[in-house]
Design a protein around this nucleic acid. Sequence first.
DNA 1: CCACAATACGGAACGTGGCTCCGCATGCCA
DNA 2: TGGCATGCGGAGCCACGTTCCGTATTGTGG
Lengths: 195, 195
Amino acid sequence: MGASDHGPQPPARKRADARRNEQSLLDAAAAAFLTAGVDAPVRDIAARAGVGVGTIYRHFPTRADLVIAVYRHQVDAAAEAGPTLLASSDTPSAALAQWIDLFVDFLVTKHGLAEALQSDDTTFEALHAYFLDRLVPVCTRLLDAAATAGEVRPDVAAYELLRGVGNLCIGAGRDPRYDARHLIELLIAGLRVHP
Amino acid sequence: MGASDHGPQPPARKRADARRNEQSLLDAAAAAFLTAGVDAPVRDIAARAGVGVGTIYRHFPTRADLVIAVYRHQVDAAAEAGPTLLASSDTPSAALAQWIDLFVDFLVTKHGLAEALQSDDTTFEALHAYFLDRLVPVCTRLLDAAATAGEVRPDVAAYELLRGVGNLCIGAGRDPRYDARHLIELLIAGLRVHP
DNA sequence: CCACAATACGGAACGTGGCTCCGCATGCCA
DNA sequence: TGGCATGCGGAGCCACGTTCCGTATTGTGG
């Protein structure tokens, strides 16, 4: 559900001010997320957008809805990059590595996103689900291709790998001594079938 | 600092009721952590212990202090297990693997601990520091031994490895599809020098 | 152009949780 | 037993999420 229809062709027309406010909120949220992370206080976001808190909840009932709306494009781009990479890379495992790099780039630059994705807070459940809906199929395809080519172990599920990578991104960029990419490289090395 | 003296020989005698309350609080906190995780509400812990909230803050000014006090023994045990394993194992890398297993066992059974350890919440800074103080030296020794024996890559710091393992433990046991141990096994496989 | 219903808005108000502060109780020692 | 250092309780303040409803705005049919 929810993973296929992202082009509301049948325009459920809304009032002009509503659309205006929705856009203001998206802009404000994006800005707030940048400086204060994805759990920036609701009131702050509302203030930035010049609206009342009620307006946020009307447009984005849960925080997850707001976060998804802000990052939807980038997540979709990552999803679409999968097949492209698979087609353009020398080997499936190279495509997989590049794709994961993309994913990491995304997570690492979004303050608090990786944390939120793994949080058990029910507020973020939908966020978790959205990421999985979009990315697990892509990752599965890359993983399958690499496994079929005998390049990686066949006993790792896309879900697990994605969560692992997501987890390793937590706290990246907050501590110079912690290099998430380095560990993810290790993880992928461990995934490889060694001669 | 704070990592070496854990036997207050010079007894800074406190009042009897103070010591009693401190113990009640430790018991109550341990129980609360078990059911509600390490961020169980302060008021709940106080109620369980039959004291006022002020008493908690007097004995344990920050949440980290309380968590540390509750888990101190187990962390110390993990620290002490390092050298023991190194002496009793066939190879340094086997000792390392076993030791990490121990660490994972600990983290996985403590609801919310792994999350707290990586949280950027300043409340938990001291917790993070305590774990590192105690465990980084031990892990460094294991890692050095294994690297010297040519069993693992020499370019991974104990700090990084511990944080990576800690991160991978986040959310373990909350989702049957996510097996932290499996990924950590992968990580360690990637750490190994392959023939 | 106007009236009026549908739609959307704002922000006061409530619940929860962390943390502080100070008047009061308690243990300790002489 | 008296006096006082030490420790205690919990009311109260703040920050934040979330709800709710009186009011304002929009767009449409007359």
